[in-house]
């Protein structure tokens, strides 16, 4: 099974019903599936901090939100993570295309890749790194854990993982 389908199944199993996205090449397939999913309201955001605001509002309204973005967005969203998602104790699964790892063709992407885990660690955000396609099997449990703990949780999915798409 394609990792895109595994991701979709995990979202559906966790009754995720509100997803905001900022695209990345690696995420194209899964974003397309989310857009087609009948029980998920898909709302593209122009910037990831805006997306986190949308997710926070949807959560207040009773939805189970998630954000799909590239790891460069960690640089954009630190304030929103600290002062909104964490401060008010809201769950937010972040499904993150981990650019700049082995297999990356664009040098500039490496510049944020080397800071990604350090920044997430500094924010005390539970972080999972999907490297092999089979790693996606854990996503269902990670999503449940995120909503249970009411915290942002990061899932970094690198280029090797996306070979399973």
């Amino acid at each position: 099974m394609s990792v895109n389908d595994v991701i979709m199944d995990a979202l559906v199993e966790n009754k995720v019903d509100f997803v905001t996205t900022v695209p990345c090449k690696q995420l194209a397939g899964v974003i397309e599936k989310i857009d087609e999913a009948p029980d998920i309201y898909h709302i593209p955001a122009n910037r990831e901090d805006e997306g986190m605001g949308l997710c926070a509002g949807a959560y207040l309204g009773g939805k189970r939100p998630a954000i799909i973005m590239q790891n460069t967005a960690i640089g954009v969203t630190i304030n929103s993570l600290a002062t909104l998602i964490q401060f008010y104790r809201m769950p937010l699964p972040m499904l993150i295309s981990y650019r700049g790892e082995v297999g990356e063709p664009v040098a500039c992407q490496v510049e944020m890749a080397v800071h990604t885990k350090a920044l997430l660690n500094q924010l005390s955000i539970p972080t999972y790194h999907f490297h092999k396609p089979d790693d996606a099997d854990e996503l269902t449990d990670i999503l449940s854990y995120c909503y249970m703990s009411k915290k942002p949780v990061a899932v970094l999915m690198d280029a090797t993982f996306w070979k399973g798409a």
Binding site: F18, D49, E50, G51, L54, G57, S80
Partner: peptide, 12 residues
């Protein structure tokens, strides 16, 4: 982010 939170809440 007030407008974004508001929109997310209204849609939900």
């Amino acid at each position: 982010l007030a407008s974004s939170i508001g929109l997310g809440l209204a849609l939900a």
